[in-house]
Design a protein around this nucleic acid. Structure first.
Lengths: 263, 263
DNA sequence: TATTGTGAATCAATTCACAGCT
DNA sequence: AGCTGTGAATTGATTCACAATA
C-alpha cells in the first residue's frame, strides 16, 4: 500500500492519488446505473451528482486516468465504464477466499456482489470441523487445515478474514504465507503484515463510534457536561466500562466478525 | 457532517479534525486492551505501535483533546480511556435500530460489540411479514409499519440500514422523518439526506475494488496490457459486463446488504 | 455554446524537530 | 533522561477559475 516504486511509464505516468482510487468504484457504480438505462453520455456535473461528489473533484480524478471526455459534450458512458473497470483491475477475474464462516462470513458468501463481475468466491474456510462440508451459499465449507492448498490451487491473491479477533492474525499469517497479498479484514484487530501486502479494514464498531461523536455534537453539549474523573489520578474501574466493546465475543450464536456489504 | 457552526467554548475550542476523530476509536481499542492487562501507563511510542500509526500523529491527535499525558512518563491508561470515551460520546447509551434483517442484518444483530458499552440494539425491523415476531439474537423482529413508533418511543437517533439497495432511500427517509440523525448505510447506494443528518457508508464491493486496484499494480502490468476498446466509439456491450456488480440482488437467499463488523 | 482539462490557490493532514516539563 | 506538546515545514487533497476546444 505504501511501497512507492516507480513502475511502467505506459499510458499515463503512474501515481493515481489514493483518494482518487477510493472514489473510482463510486463513479463506476453510478456509470453502471446509467449504462443500464442506456444513457449514452453524461456531463461531469450530472455524474458527480449521481456519485455524491462535486464536479471539479470528479474531473480532476478523471484527469489522472487520461482524457476520456469530449469538451462541450461530456463522457461516453460505456467507454468510461470500460476504462475505470480496467484501471481498477476488474476486467480480470479475482478468486477470493473467505475465512471464518460464522454469521458474518455467511452473509458475505451470500452477497450477490461477490458472484458478479470481477470477484469470485473460490472457497469458504472455517476452523470448526462441524462446519466442514456444510454448504453455505451453495459452496461447501472446507476445513482450515486445507487453507494453504486452497490458496495455491486456486491462485488466490485476495483473502477475506471474518474470524473472531483472536484468530485473525494467525489466519492472516497463513494466508500471506500461502501467497495472498491483499486482505480485507473484518475482525476488530490490527493485523501485522510484511511489506508488499495490503490490508483494508472494515469495522462496524469504529463507524458507530464516529457517528456517536457527531451525534453528541448535535445533541448539544449541555447535559452531563462534566460528571467526574477530574484528573489523571486514581480512576480505576469507572472507565473500564468503556472497555469490553471490542475484543472478546460476548453473546453471538457463533463468533466471527460482522461484514460489510450491500444488497 | 459538514455544518461548520461554532459551539461551546468549553474545555478546549471545538474543531477536532475529522481525521483525528476517525482514529480515536482505534486508540480506544488499543487502550482498552492495555487496561484489561492492567498496564498503568503507556508512552506515545508504544500506544502508536499498538494502534498502527506513528507516534507524532498520535501525540498531535491527543493534543486536540487536551494535555492528558505526563512528560517524561507517558499517558495514564485508565484516564485516557475515559477521556476518549467521553469525547466520542460513549459514556452515554445510544439506542440503535437495524432495518433489514436478512443475512447481514442478522449478522449485525448478533455482533457482540453492539450489546456492549455505548450501543444498544433497541429494535430489529424488517418489511417481510414472515419475519415479524421471529427472534433474531434474542430480539423479536418488528414490522416496518411500526418504524416511526419504534424510533420515537425509544428515542433512537442512530439507524443502521441493511436492506437491499432499492429500499434504502425510502427507509432512510422514514428514519430521518421519525427523528434519526445518524445513519450507517450498508446498502450499495448513495443516500440523500437533509442537512444535519450524518451518513456513513460501509461497502464491501468498494473495498474489494480498491484492493483489486493495488493487486493489479503488484502483479505487473504486462499481461493483457491492452486488449480492446481503442476509442470512445461503439463499444456497447463489452463493458456492460463490469456492470451487474452492484445494484440488483442476484443470488442470495434473501436480499440485504452484507455488514461490517468484528467478532 | 457547453463542457472538459488543468494550472494556481486554498485548505487539511502529516511529519519534523525541538523546547518545555517531570 | 525521557517523553510530551506543539509550532513550523511539508505533503497531499480539494476547490477555484478559466483557457482550450469539440
Amino acid at each position: 500500500m505504501a511501497t512507492g516504486r516507480t513502475h511502467r511509464p505506459a499510458t499515463r505516468s503512474r501515481g493515481i492519488p489514493e483518494a482518487t482510487v477510493a472514489r473510482l468504484p463510486l463513479y463506476l457504480r453510478a456509470l453502471t446505473a446509467l449504462s443500464e438505462r442506456s444513457v449514452p453520455t453524461v456531463s461531469s456535473e450530472e455524474l458527480a451528482a449521481a456519485a455524491g461528489v462535486n464536479s471539479a473533484k470528479l474531473r480532476k480524478d478523471f484527469s489522472y486516468l487520461g482524457s476520456y471526455g469530449t469538451r462541450g459534450v461530456g463522457y461516453d458512458v460505456e467507454y468510461l465504464v470500460y476504462q475505470i473497470s480496467r484501471e481498477l483491475g476488474l476486467t480480470q477475474d479475482w478468486p477470493v477466499v473467505i475465512v471464518g464462516i460464522g454469521n458474518l462470513g455467511a452473509a458475505l458468501a451470500n452477497y450477490g456482489g461477490f458472484a458478479s463481475r470481477g470477484f469470485r468466491v473460490a472457497a469458504l474456510i472455517d476452523a470448526d470441523p462441524a462446519m466442514t462440508g456444510k454448504p453455505v451459499a451453495g459452496i461447501p465449507v472446507q476445513h482450515a487445515d486445507a487453507l494453504e492448498d486452497i490458496v495455491r490451487d486456486n491462485g488466490v491473491s485476495i483473502g477475506v478474514i471474518a474470524t473472531p479477533a483472536g484468530a485473525a492474525q494467525q489466519v492472516c499469517d497463513r494466508l500471506v504465507g500461502a501467497g495472498v497479498t491483499s486482505i480485507l479484514n473484518f475482525a476488530p484487530t490490527m493485523l501485522t503484515v510484511p511489506d508488499g501486502v495490503d490490508v483494508r479494514k472494515v469495522d462496524l464498531s469504529i463507524e458507530l463510534q464516529i457517528l456517536a461523536f457527531h451525534e453528541q455534537r448535535k445533541a448539544g453539549e449541555d447535559a452531563a457536561a462534566d460528571s467526574g474523573m477530574p484528573a489523571p489520578a486514581a480512576v480505576k474501574g469507572a472507565a473500564a466500562a468503556a472497555a469490553a466493546m471490542d475484543e472478546a465475543d460476548p453473546k453471538g450464536t457463533d463468533g466471527e466478525a460482522p461484514a460489510v456489504m450491500p444488497a
